[in-house]
């Protein structure tokens, strides 16, 4: 019994220490912004690998989610003769919830895990130590551009997700199921509030982008520099990011719409 408490205590202390290290990492990440301003190319390169290369999976996922929303929404709304609200329902679901949340989950799986693996491998192959010995701060040079690239990319990717989701909903609702197209777009235009829906959705995606990228760069930087350590860190990135996004979504939704 005593061993159990001791193990729990050790686990708790280790977790708190890691959390502390993760928070301390934020200072050099923010300071790395100066390096980025001096050499924007560092950020542009990362925006390509973190953001642009994630567009395809986001676009395809957004389109399919929108199509499913159109189909399911039509089935429910048609029971009450409310098919004309399909546009509003699809757009509201996407802009408020599914766009930011699913984008963040997909981002964590595609780009977050890649970030962790890349940084972890750089650590395992002594590239980060090499940078330090060349008087180059790896936190500014390697981590900060990746962090800000993620922070910028996720809201933009969420916007792409939502736009293509609406397009998917319209293709199914307006194209296949015969919902009046004017009613589809009018309902969306009248029902969606710029501040309550769009801005809140953007705030969510910024928060999710921050958390997912922070977790990814920290896990890579803090991993045990072995192949097993990198593998475990990559798994932790996806698990922690997914849970953090879902938990934070509830908190943010309660604050915004509760």
């Amino acid at each position: 019994m005593l061993n159990l408490f001791a193990s729990l205590g050790a686990w708790g202390m280790a977790s708190l220490t890691r959390l502390g290290r993760a928070h301390l990492l934020l200072f050099p990440l923010v300071r790395g912004l100066l390096d980025i301003l001096r050499r924007p190319r560092l950020l542009v390169d990362q925006l390509f690998s973190v953001g642009v290369l994630t567009i395809l999976i986001i676009a395809v996922a957004g389109l399919f989610v929108g199509m499913v929303l159109g189909l399911q929404g039509y089935n429910v709304l048609s029971r009450f003769g409310g098919e004309t609200a399909l546009g509003f329902m699809v757009a509201a679901s996407l802009v408020r919830e599914l766009g930011p949340v699913l984008t963040a989950l997909l981002f964590a799986g595609r780009a977050g895990s890649a970030l962790t693996a890349e940084i972890g491998l750089m650590k395992a192959t002594e590239q980060l130590s090499g940078l330090e010995m060349m008087a180059v701060n790896p936190e500014h040079r390697v981590l900060a551009p990746r962090f800000f690239a993620g922070l910028i990319s996720v809201p933009l990717l969420a916007a792409i997700f939502s736009c293509l989701g609406v397009l998917g909903g319209w293709m199914v609702g307006g194209g296949l199921l015969g919902v009046d197209q004017a009613a589809f777009w009018n309902g969306m235009q009248e029902g969606i509030d710029f501040h309550d829906d769009v801005i809140n959705g953007v705030i969510k995606s910024v928060v999710f982008g921050f958390v997912c990228t922070w977790i990814a760069v920290f896990q890579g930087y803090d991993c045990v520099p072995t192949s097993e350590g990198v593998s475990r860190a990559t798994t932790r990135t996806v698990v922690h990011s997914s849970l953090a996004v879902l938990g934070l979504d509830f908190v943010l939704t309660a604050l915004m719409f509760g």
Binding site: T125, E126, Q127, S129, G130, M133, V136
Partner: peptide, 26 residues
């Protein structure tokens, strides 16, 4: 450190840069 050089056991070359760019890096 700018006045020190270090040769790591693995070389520690930056894998996304060519030989030229690695040497030009510092």
């Amino acid at each position: 450190r700018m006045r020190m050089g270090m040769l790591f056991q693995s070389g520690a070359l930056l894998t996304d840069l060519s030989v030229f760019d690695n040497v030009a890096f510092p």
